[in-house]
Nucleic acid binder design. Sequence first.
DNA 1: TAGATATTTTGAAAATTATCTAAATATATT
DNA 2: AATATATTTAGATAATTTTCAAAATATCTA
Lengths: 98, 98
Amino acid sequence: MMLDVFFKALSDPTRREILKILRQGDLTAGEIAEHFNISKPSLSHHLNVLKQADLVLDERKGQYISYSLNTSVFQDLLAWFVDMFNQEDRGDRVEKKK
Amino acid sequence: MMLDVFFKALSDPTRREILKILRQGDLTAGEIAEHFNISKPSLSHHLNVLKQADLVLDERKGQYISYSLNTSVFQDLLAWFVDMFNQEDRGDRVEKKK
DNA sequence: TAGATATTTTGAAAATTATCTAAATATATT
DNA sequence: AATATATTTAGATAATTTTCAAAATATCTA
């Protein structure tokens, strides 16, 4: 399910920090790695999780691979929130008994 | 960190389903358990995770414990989203080089 | 094409989380 | 007080996730 990969991706603090850093602008995998005290394979794993969740985009530029935020997908997440807490739609108003 | 327990809580499909069910109205632990094919201790664990994340509230009513959605906390989550994708605040405009 | 740099993939170990059964706690009823 | 019902806690195991070192892949440069 789509929400599953979303929330899984967001549930790790390292990955949320990656997203935060990418707000400043696109970075290569190596540049991102400099911000953290974990190995590059670990970082690569996290980037892959974010990619699977469509939260980041990657583009090879020569030797480097540049990562960027994919802001468009957040609309889906926002939709989930709105749906979850949309008063109109909740069952706690008058309801027929079963 | 606060966001950590939020997203950890939301990263599990069973827990998201619990939230969904609670939109219909408050339920006891046992009633929630009926919706799932997992043991009551497991359910109890999930409810506890949601409680730690402030996503649900519990209130003992005699023998039963009634669970309800805590909608107020979602404002914090929404704030996170808004902050993450607030254009004004992003660094991808004119920026001094390092 | 050989060597250097950037990144990912593989395979395994460590850490965390989910799940279960059995036991414990809390309340209700007789 | 004894028994029944609702739920949680404890303790153990299974499943998943994170992490790393080593190897593999891709690109660049001399």
